[in-house]
C-alpha cells in the first residue's frame, strides 16, 4: 500500500471518528445548536433594539444593523467552531483517554491535523448554515442583492489563517494537561475583542486597532460584510482575501512546527500519559 493511500485512510479516520462522535453525542450537539441560535438571535435583535431606543430622529437603519450583527455572529460562530474542533485535537483524546493510542499510531501530525481540519471546516459550514437559515427566516432578511458566493469564498479563505492559529493554540492542552483546554479561550476572547465582530474596529482605541489589523478575523468579517451587505463582486474582495491567505500560508506551517516541538517536549517530560 502506498504512503499516499495510507495518508488518505488516516485522514479519513479522523473525519469518520469525529462524525461518529457527533452522531453519538447528538443530544449535546442539539443543545449547543439551540444555544448558538438563541445567542445569534439575541445579538441580532440589538439592531432592532437600537432603532427602537433611539427614536426616529436618530435616523438609525435597524434592518441594516440587524444584518451587520447577523453577519458578525455567523462569521464568528463559523470561525470559533473551526477553532475549537482543531484545538480539541488533544483535549478530546485526553478526555476519552485515547491520547497515547492516537499518538503512537503511524500517522504524520500533518495528516492528523488535516483530518481534524477538514472535518472542522465541513462541520463549521453545516452548523453555521443551520443558524443562518433560522436567522434569515426570523428576521425576514433580504439577501437578494447579496453576493452569497463571495461571502462563502471569503469565509473559506479566512479558514486557513484560523486553522494555523488553532494548530498553534492546540499545543496548550498538550503542555498543560489540567488547564490547557481552558487556556484556549483566552485567544478567542482577544480575537473577539479586536476583530470587529459586532462593531467596526475604528471604534476601538488606536492600540487595539493595531492588534485588530493582525487578526485574520478582521479581514474575513470585512470581506463577508462587503459581499453580503453591499453585494461586492467576488474578485473585488481580493484586498480582503490576500491578507488571510498570506497569514494562513505562514501560520499553518508555523503551527505544525510549534506542535511538533511541543509534542517532543511532552514526550520528554512524560505529559502524554493520561495517568502517571
Amino acid at each position: 500500500m502506498t504512503t499516499a493511500i495510507q495518508n488518505i485512510q488516516a485522514t479519513y479516520a479522523f473525519m469518520e471518528r469525529n462524525a461518529n462522535l457527533v452522531k453519538r453525542y447528538w443530544a449535546w450537539e442539539l443543545v449547543w445548536m439551540t444555544y448558538s441560535i438563541a445567542n445569534s438571535l439575541s445579538v441580532s435583535f440589538i439592531g432592532l433594539g437600537m432603532e427602537a431606543l433611539s427614536g426616529q430622529e436618530a435616523n438609525i437603519d435597524g434592518r441594516f444593523l440587524v444584518l451587520y450583527l447577523v453577519i458578525g455572529t455567523l462569521v464568528w460562530r463559523y470561525l470559533t467552531t473551526v477553532f475549537y474542533w482543531i484545538t480539541e485535537v488533544i483535549s478530546i483524546e485526553r478526555w476519552e483517554g485515547t491520547i497515547e493510542y492516537t499518538l503512537m499510531a503511524p500517522v504524520r501530525r500533518v495528516v492528523h491535523m488535516a483530518g481534524q481540519t477538514i472535518f472542522a471546516v465541513f462541520y463549521g459550514l453545516f452548523f453555521t448554515g443551520v443558524i443562518m437559515g433560522v436567522t434569515v427566516l426570523i428576521f425576514d432578511l433580504d439577501l437578494s442583492q447579496a453576493n452569497v458566493l463571495g461571502g462563502l469564498v471569503m469565509l473559506v479563505a479566512g479558514s486557513f489563517s484560523f486553522i494555523g492559529i488553532s494548530i498553534m493554540v492546540s499545543v496548550l492542552p498538550l503542555l498543560f494537561p489540567e488547564r490547557g483546554a481552558q487556556m484556549t479561550h483566552i485567544v478567542i476572547a482577544v480575537l473577539l475583542l479586536v476583530s470587529g465582530v459586532y462593531y467596526p474596529i475604528e471604534v476601538l482605541p488606536k492600540w487595539l486597532q493595531v492588534v485588530g489589523v493582525a487578526s485574520p478575523a478582521t479581514y474575513v468579517l470585512d470581506g463577508v460584510r462587503l459581499a453580503l451587505l453591499e453585494g461586492t463582486p467576488t474578485l473585488s474582495l481580493w484586498p480582503q482575501i490576500w491578507p488571510v491567505i498570506l497569514m494562513g500560508a505562514a501560520l499553518i506551517p508555523a503551527g505544525l512546527w510549534v506542535f511538533n516541538l511541543a509534542e517532543r517536549y511532552a514526550k520528554r517530560a512524560g505529559k502524554l500519559a493520561r495517568n502517571g
Binding site: Q9, Y12, A13, E16, T102, A105, V107
Partner: peptide, 11 residues
C-alpha cells in the same frame, strides 16, 4: 476498531 485500523492504513 475501524478508527484504529484506518490509522494503520487499512480500509
Amino acid at each position: 476498531l475501524i478508527y484504529g485500523a484506518r490509522l494503520y492504513g487499512m480500509g
